[in-house]
Amino acid sequence: MINQAILSMLWNGTLDTLRMVSIATFLATLAGLPVGVLLTTTAPGHILEQPFLHRVCGGIVNLGRSIPFIILMVAIIPFTRLIAGTSIGTTAAIVPLTVAATPFVARLVDGALREVDAGVIEAAESMGATPPQIIYKVMIPEALPGLVLAVTVTAVNLVGYSAMAGSIGGGGLGDLAIRYGYQRFRGDIMLMTVIILVLLVQGIQMLGDAVARKFYHRN
């Protein structure tokens, strides 16, 4: 039976998941945005052209993205302990989630920034804009809808990753699903967690779409 205790467990699990996802998304955006800017602007023909740096940076990002999350999570346990003091629980799970999402964000940011019309950047250059001015006043504002969608995709992915993190003691809805749904054969709890996860993803995507639309003025 679904009783009060289970409901409150689901509620707390949802809050844990939300906390992990939102903090990891925030930190990964903070770290991934500059890397993405670096990737775009150092590309051949761009405002800070640095072919060697561009290749090195791109290589590291690709490497980060090619490691499966579950392996990454185990591999960086020492690092997680160093940062969070422990490798168990929701707070600890934020570390691998952030590390995994950062290269992902960087690549998506790069993609969004590359969509900015070269002519507009050139117009800014013709007005004497410096590279930092071009980045802050032209590229990022012009790419804002794309950047918002990039963050949204990242958050959605992190919901999935956080469930995986739950399977090895990360807390949140994934943890519930494993401990009750799988290990104690509570199919009903399993189903509830899945429904909540689906709703979370829908909600995040809707929010992201709405915010992106607000910044979109092209028509």
Binding site: E122, A124, S126, M127, P141
Partner: peptide, 27 residues
């Protein structure tokens, strides 16, 4: 030195006011 382009190259994220103000902001 002002420059005018075939495809306008305006900033879509800015209003007309903000577009005209752009070089002034830069300066």
């Amino acid at each position: 030195i002002g420059m005018v382009f075939q495809h306008f190259n305006l900033l879509n994220s800015r209003t007309v006011f903000q577009n005209i103000a752009f070089p002034l902001e830069l300066a």
